[in-house]
């Protein structure tokens, strides 16, 4: 029986826009099991990224609770949240967000600077992560010397280097061509299947979404029924 890792209960999020209050998420309740791979789809402005930010402790809900592994993260202080993120969440962004002044290896090593690991162990972890994404030979390259796909692989290595249980991906294939996007999705699928990572992925791309075990649809801040047509995964493992 699957264990629930993430639980959202009645989560709403409002933003102030001038004098107006905009409700981006409206009473979301959702459970995500350990080892799940969830796709989040919906039109622009539907609240997908906001939901992802709440899951990752980058933002706090206006109402409701966000629990991860039994801990109510929406009640944590900013400092405690930052510490929690460093050991529980790996972020993967659409535009990779690598630091241009650092080599691939140093980019990957960044989250390890938040741990007490000695330098030799950090190097070991970085090598393992780069090996896992197939970029060992590019370790000393700077982001500008890498292709988009390679940059995203480095970003994935950075996300997994400290072995967090949850990966949050915001349009991870949004900036890539079809075949590179497939490679990235294969990699994420492998991390889910072989390493048990729980993945929540925001995407506009139905093909990428088809790699997920299940796809949630957000519209106007509410979880709704999926549209009728969702293309099948090219080798996906949709239940």
């Amino acid at each position: 029986m699957a264990t629930q890792l993430i639980q959202l209960t009645g989560v709403s999020k409002n933003y102030r826009k001038g004098r107006e209050t905009v409700r981006v998420l409206d009473g979301i309740s959702l459970g995500i099991d350990k080892g799940d791979f969830v796709g989040l789809m919906g039109p622009s402005g539907s609240g997908k990224t906001t939901l992802l930010n709440l899951l990752g402790g980058l933002d706090k809900p206006t109402e409701g609770l966000v629990e991860v592994d039994g801990r109510v993260i929406s009640a944590l202080s900013p400092g405690a949240l930052a510490k929690w993120r460093s050991s529980n969440i790996g972020f993967i962004f659409q535009f990779y967000n690598l630091l241009p002044v650092l080599t691939a290896a140093r980019n990957v090593a960044l989250p390890l600077l938040l741990t007490s690991l000695p330098a030799s162990r950090r190097k070991q972890h970085v090598n393992t992560a780069l090996q896992l994404v197939g970029l060992t030979e590019r370790a000393s390259h700077y982001p500008r010397e890498l292709s988009g796909g390679q940059e995203q692989r480095v970003a994935i290595a950075r996300a997994i280097v400290s072995d967090p249980p949850i990966l949050l991906c915001d349009e991870p294939t949004g900036d890539l061509d079809r075949s590179t996007a497939d490679e990235i999705m294969d990699l994420l699928q492998r991390l889910n299947r072989d390493y048990g990572k729980t993945i929540v992925m925001v995407t506009h791309d139905p093909r990428a979404a088809s790699f997920a075990h299940r796809v949630l649809h957000l519209d106007k801040g509410e979880l709704g029924a999926p549209p009728e047509e969702t293309p099948g995964a090219p080798g996906g493992t949709s239940p």
Partner: peptide, 15 residues
């Protein structure tokens, strides 16, 4: 701005 935000998302503190 984006680099700083990324680092803070990774867990680096605001202080």
């Amino acid at each position: 701005a984006r680099e700083l935000a990324t680092l803070r998302a990774l867990g680096f503190g605001s202080l």
